[in-house]
Design a protein around this nucleic acid. Structure first.
Lengths: 338, 338
DNA sequence: GCGAAGCACGCAAACCTTTGCGCAGCAACG
DNA sequence: CGTTGCTGCGCAAAGGTTTGCGTGCTTCGC
C-alpha cells in the first residue's frame, strides 16, 4: 500500500472553500466561463490556485468522451529521425492542450497490435502512425473504429499522410551525382517495405536510368535503417569487382555506416568515393567529413501531422501533405575539378 | 463533430449479452476472478472478446485511484542516450501493464514545470526523472505530493537514483590514457550542472592528478552534450599552443564533434590525437574510425528504474542503484607501439 | 429431511468531472 | 406596481469501472 496519496483536493474541495456548488466551480474553471458571475470566477480561480487544484483529465474525459491524448506509433525512438519528428509532434500537441503517448512497435506486427490495443484502451483521441509498412492494417482498423489518424514520414496508398516527397529526394541525389560526372553508382536502399526506402531508391534509379546509366541490381543493396546495416551494405558494394564511384544511402545513418566500410576498403570518403545521405540529421554537418544529404523537414512533418489531426477532430477530412526535400551539399560530394 | 465514434461497447454491453450483472462481468474480467463461477468467467470472457470489449483504463483508474501510467521526464528524446533509456523503460513498464508518458523538458525549468503539471493532471502513478540538474526541485515537489519517483542516469544528493558509476567511468578513461603514455590531455566536460558531466570529468581529472599530471583548466572545456558543441570544444582544444595528445569527451556525440575538429586542425584521429567517448552508443563501433568509449548499460538503467518504481508502488523504500561502467577499446586509442 | 455453511451473483455507492435544465432574484419596461 | 426577460447559480444525471455488502440458492452434514 503506497503511503496514502496526499491529494484529496478535488473540484468539490475548491467548491466547498468558495462556498459555491461544484458545478459552478467547474464552470468557473472552464476556459470560457459562461453562466457564472465574473467575481465568482475570480474567487474560484484564486482558491483553486491556492489549494493546488488540478483538474483530473481522466475523469473529465470520462464525462466528455475525449481523452485529449494523441497516440504515436513509431518503429523505434532510438531512430533519430523518428525521435525528431516525435519531438515536434509532442511540442505541437501539448501547445494545443493534448498529451501524447508514444509506442515503440519495433516494426513487429504482433508487438504493434499489443501496443495499439493499449493505446485504444486509453481512449486515445487520434493516432499518428510513423511506422507504416506496405500491407499493414493499422490504418484500416482505426478507420473502422472511427479513430482519426494520419501517417507521418512513410506513406501508404489510400491513407492520409504527411511526408516528404521522397521520390523527388532520390532524384535530387541522382541529379547531383550526374552533375559531378558519376556514372557507376551504388544505392543503399533501406527497407523496401517502407515507402521511404522504396521511393527514394526509385527516384534515384529512375533518374539514372533516364540519363542513360541504368543501375545494375548488384549495385542496389537492401538494408535496414541503422548504422551497422549501412556498414554491411557498404562493404558489399566496395567488394564488387568494379566498386561504385559514388553511393547514395537513403538514410544518414546508413551513410555513416558506409563511411566506415569505404575507409575499411582503403578508400577516402569524398575523394575516392562520393557519398550522399538522407534526412540531414544534425550530425551530418559535424561528421569528420561533413556529409552531403537530402534534407527533409522533420519538425514540419511532426507539427503538420498534429495540425491535420486537430482538423480531423473538428470534422474536416484529412488531406495528404507532401513537403519538398532539399539538397544540402557538403564535403562528401566534391566537384571533381580539385 | 467527429463522425460519431463507434465504440459504445462497454462493460454494460458485455454484461447484457452474457445475461449477468455488470459487477459480475467486471469480476469475471479481472486478472484473478474471485466470487464468480468458472463457467461464467469463460462465458463473459468469450463474449468480451467477440464484442471487442476493451476496459476503459481511465474509468477504472477513476475508481481505483491509480492510472497505471508512469511519467518520464527527459531533456530531449533526440538525445540518443535518453532515447535508449526511455525505450527500455517503456518496454519494462508495458510488460508490467503500465503505460508511459514522456515529456521533453528541453532542460528549461519553466517548460519543465508545465510538462510536469500536465503529467500530474493525468494522475500519474510515478515519475522517472532523467533530466535532473543540481538544484532542481522536481524531486522535492513530487515527494511532497507523495508521488513515487526515481532519478535515472543523473543523480542528485538525497534522491533515489539508478545510474552508472560515472566517477569510476572517468577514472577508467584516465587510466587507459595513462597506460598508453599520454600526459598532456584535454577533457570535454559536458554540462557541469548534470551529475554525468560533473562526475565523469571529476573522476578523470582526479586520476590524472593522482598520477602526477594535473590537468590545467585551459584543457578542460565545458560544453553541452551535442555534436556541434563537441566540435566547438574540440576546436578550442586544438587551438591551444600545445594541443593535447588525447581527449576525453564525456559523451559519444561530443567525441563525434571533436573528431571533426581534430581533422579540421589537420590531425589524424587515433594517430595524432587519441579520443575516448562515453556511453558506447551503437554508432561508436561503426564510425569511420571506431571510437573507444566507456560503456554504460542504458537498457539496464531503464529497466531497473522501472523495477524500483514498481517496488515503491508496493510500499518499499526505493534505494539507489549504481551500475558499473566498462571500458571498450577501439581504434581511436591505439597502442603507441605502432 | 432439516439447518447451517458456502458459493455465485446482484445491488448500489463511489471515483471526479461536465452540462442540460430549472429556479430564484433582479432590473427594466410598460 | 405587475410582468417580462435575463443572469447567476444549484440540482442531478451521466460517463465506465470497481468493490463491500447483502441475498438467494446449492450442497453438505447430521
Amino acid at each position: 500500500m503506497p503511503p496514502a496519496r496526499s491529494r484529496p483536493v478535488t473540484l468539490a474541495t475548491v467548491a466547498r472553500h468558495a462556498q459555491v456548488h461544484v458545478s459552478t466551480a467547474s464552470r468557473a474553471l472552464s476556459e470560457a466561463p459562461s453562466g457564472v458571475g465574473p467575481d465568482t470566477v475570480r474567487r474560484v480561480r484564486e482558491l483553486a490556485a491556492v489549494l493546488g487544484y488540478r483538474r483530473d483529465v481522466g475523469a473529465a474525459g470520462l464525462r466528455t468522451g475525449n481523452s485529449r491524448l494523441i497516440g504515436v506509433l513509431v518503429p523505434r525512438l532510438t531512430d533519430l529521425v523518428l525521435a525528431s519528428i516525435y519531438e515536434s509532434i509532442d511540442a505541437a500537441a501539448s501547445a494545443a492542450g493534448y498529451g501524447t503517448v508514444v509506442a515503440n512497435t519495433l516494426d513487429d506486427p504482433e508487438h504493434r497490435r499489443v501496443r495499439l490495443d493499449a493505446l485504444l484502451s486509453r481512449r486515445i483521441d487520434a493516432v499518428i502512425i510513423g511506422d507504416s509498412h506496405s500491407g499493414d492494417s493499422a490504418g484500416l482498423e482505426l478507420r473502422d473504429r472511427g479513430v482519426p489518424y494520419v501517417l507521418v514520414m512513410r506513406t501508404l496508398e489510400g491513407h492520409p499522410s504527411v511526408s516528404t516527397d521522397d521520390y523527388h529526394g532520390g532524384r535530387l541525389a541522382a541529379e547531383h551525382l550526374l552533375d559531378l560526372g558519376h556514372h557507376r553508382v551504388g544505392v543503399i536502399c533501406g527497407d523496401q517495405l517502407a515507402s521511404t526506402g522504396r521511393e527514394r531508391t526509385l527516384g534515384f534509379r529512375r533518374t539514372f536510368e533516364a540519363a542513360g546509366y541504368p543501375i545494375p541490381d548488384a549495385y542496389s543493396i537492401d538494408s535496414g535503417f541503422s548504422t551497422p546495416s549501412g556498414a554491411e551494405a557498404g562493404t558489399e558494394l566496395m567488394r564488387l569487382a568494379e566498386p561504385p564511384t559514388a553511393i547514395f544511402a537513403v538514410h544518414d545513418l546508413l551513410a555513416l555506416g558506409a563511411m566506415g566500410a569505404i575507409r575499411d576498403a582503403g578508400r577516402q570518403v569524398g575523394e575516392d568515393v562520393a557519398l550522399i545521405g538522407y534526412n540531414d540529421l544534425d550530425l551530418a554537418a559535424t561528421l569528420p567529413v561533413p556529409l552531403t544529404s537530402i534534407r527533409s523537414d522533420l519538425a514540419a512533418m511532426g507539427s503538420q501531422s498534429v495540425d491535420a489531426l486537430l482538423r480531423a477532430l473538428n470534422g474536416e477530412v484529412p488531406r495528404s501533405v507532401l513537403l519538398p526535400p532539399e539538397l544540402v551539399i557538403r564535403a562528401t560530394t566534391p566537384r571533381p575539378s580539385a
